[in-house]
C-alpha cells in the first residue's frame, strides 16, 4: 500500500548561469497520507520550498519519482494549488477576480466562477472586500485571498510555502486558527513549509525535520495532540516537550554550518 503522495530518491540541482551549481535536494524521500496535514521544518535554504515547487510541477527533479494518488507528477495541474509566502496576487485584479484566476484559466463559466468565489470569500472572511484591490488590503487579508484563490479550483493538495511568514505575530496566530478551521471544513491534504516549530506542531498531524542543504528528510514527528486544537494548547506540557524535541533535532542542522 503506497502513500497518497510518495517521493523516492528525489534529486535536484540548480545550475544558475555563471554560478556554482547548488544541490537543493538529495535522495529526498517523503510519504504523505491523504487528508493529512504535514509540516516541513528545516534550516534556511534546505530545499523545502524547492520540494513544494517540484510537487507543484514548476521545478523538475533531475532524478527520482514523485507520485500523487498513483500518478507521476509531470507538470502543473489543478489537483494541486500553492499558497505563496509573498501572496502572489495580481495587483490589477480585485479580490474577487484574483480568487477566480484559477477557474478562469480552466475556462469555467462566469456564473459558476462567481458562485465559487463568493462562497470562498465568505469562508475566508472577506465579505465586503470583493471589489478591493490588493494594495488596499492588509497582509493578513492578502493571504486570505491567496488561500481562497488556492481553494477555488478545489485541489486535492494544498501546498503552503511559509504562508504566514510575512505577517505580524498576532495576525499569524489568527490565520493559523482560521487555517485549521478551513482545513477541517475543506478536507484537503496539506503540505506546509515553515520556520516556526510552534506553528508546525499546532497545525500538523506530522512534522518533518529536514537536514541542511542538500535537503534530506531527517526525522518525522507524529503530533498526537487532540483535535480540534485551541490556542491554549500551546502552553501545555506535551506541546512544549514536542517543541523541545523538534528543536533539538533542528538545532544541529542550523548550528553545524
Amino acid at each position: 500500500m503506497s502513500a497518497y503522495i510518495q517521493g523516492r530518491n528525489v534529486n535536484l540541482t540548480f545550475r544558475p548561469p555563471n554560478r556554482r551549481p547548488v544541490r537543493a535536494l538529495q535522495n529526498f524521500d517523503i510519504d504523505v497520507n491523504e487528508g493529512e496535514f504535514l509540516s516541513i521544518v528545516g534550516p534556511s535554504g534546505c530545499g523545502k520550498s524547492t520540494f513544494l515547487n517540484v510537487l507543484l510541477g514548476l521545478a523538475k527533479p533531475d532524478s527520482g519519482d514523485i507520485m500523487l494518488g498513483g500518478k507521476r507528477i509531470e507538470g502543473p495541474g489543478t489537483d494541486r494549488a500553492m499558497v505563496f509566502q509573498e501572496f502572489g496576487l495580481l495587483p490589477w485584479r480585485t479580490v474577487q477576480s484574483n480568487v477566480e484566476l484559477g477557474l478562469e484559466l480552466k475556462g469555467v463559466a462566469t456564473e459558476t466562477r462567481r458562485e465559487v468565489s463568493q462562497r470562498l470569500i465568505e469562508m475566508v472572511g472577506l465579505v465586503g472586500f470583493e471589489t478591493h484591490y490588493p494594495h488596499e488590503l492588509s497582509g493578513g487579508m492578502k493571504q486570505r485571498v491567496g488561500l481562497a484563490r488556492a481553494l477555488a479550483t478545489d485541489p486535492d493538495v494544498l501546498l503552503m510555502d511559509e504562508p504566514f511568514a510575512a505577517l505580524d505575530a498576532q495576525t499569524r496566530d489568527l490565520m493559523q486558527v482560521e487555517l485549521l478551521r478551513i482545513w477541517q471544513e475543506a478536507k484537503k491534504t496539506v503540505l506546509f513549509v515553515t520556520h516556526q516549530i510552534d506553528e508546525a506542531i499546532y497545525l500538523s498531524d506530522r512534522v518533518m525535520v529536514m537536514t541542511k542543504r542538500p535537503g534530506q528528510a531527517k526525522k518525522i514527528f507524529a503530533i498526537d495532540l487532540p483535535r480540534p486544537r485551541d490556542y491554549e494548547m500551546r502552553v501545555t506540557r506535551e506541546f512544549n516537550d514536542l517543541k523541545l524535541e523538534i528543536w533539538n533535532e533542528l538545532k544541529d542542522e542550523i548550528t553545524s554550518r
Binding site: 507543484l56 510541477g57 489543478t78 505563496f84 502572489g88 484566476l101 484559477g102 484559466l105 480552466k106 479550483t153
Partner: peptide, 19 residues
Amino acid sequence: LLINVVRSMGGTEKDLYLK
C-alpha cells in the same frame, strides 16, 4: 512570482501575456 502563479494554475503562454 506572478508568472509562476499563472503557470502553476495551468496557464499557457498566451495566458501569461494576457493576464
